[in-house]
Amino acid sequence: MSERAFRIWRGTAAGGEFGEHRIDVDEGMVVLDVLHRIQAKQANDLAIRWNCKAGKCGSCSMEINGRPRLACMTRMNLFADRETITVQPLKAFPVIRDLVTDVSWNFEQNKRIPPFRPGPKGSDGQYRMHQKDVDRVQEFRKCIECYLCQDVCHVLRDQSRKDAFVGPRFMIRLASLEMHPLDTADRIPAVRKEFGSGFCNITRCCTEVCPEHIEITDNGIIPLKERVVDRFYDPLLWLGRKIFGR
């Protein structure tokens, strides 16, 4: 057991400041364990959002020493012995209180995405898909909606263009639908226009912070961008649309 120093942002949308805490830490603890100990012993009303404490629900997203992380998967031995640990709420979303932010914008985006539309079943009443054809979609479906990718996305975080770009999480959701072997809907025009695929400039920050290690940029966003390019910027198709008017 050793004593560690924590700086935790406390406040509301109206403003706030860092609170300093010194607290005993046991072997094997993660940052969320320490926050709970601080909550139980020193700051009873500290607001934290968390659920599973096993990296499966994506609730305890916050910024720890400047990096977006899941508090439940951030082990204390990641930090140097005397390092002060600074914990802040996600920057890309409005603060509700302390470490809890208002992520409702994300739920609104999900609603805008045209739902899954499967084709007809086979003659035996079953759908058939082969494993190699669903591996990629399953990779995207590992997403736990922690929104760390949304938090680091420059378009959302620095440029505040939530009006124009749906963010990496929902590019991945779109990709999982577009690449689903049974799906028949066409979302490519919307990927370009309503969802703003062109805003992503492929800095791969989202991929770097993904706790599920989803290759967001390379496997999801870039293939979607390619589909948009093939559809809208292919010279032959462009000519065809001019002539046939579609």
């Binding site: 899954f116 499967p118 079953q126 898909m129 082969h130 494993q131 669903v134 979609v137 399953q138 689903h180």
Partner: peptide, 18 residues
């Protein structure tokens, strides 16, 4: 379970694609 598949769930597959 089959209804979930109709709603977009992607379960692991058998060799026959089921």
């Amino acid at each position: 379970v089959r209804e979930l598949e109709e709603w977009g769930a992607v379960f692991d597959r058998t060799k026959d694609g089921l």
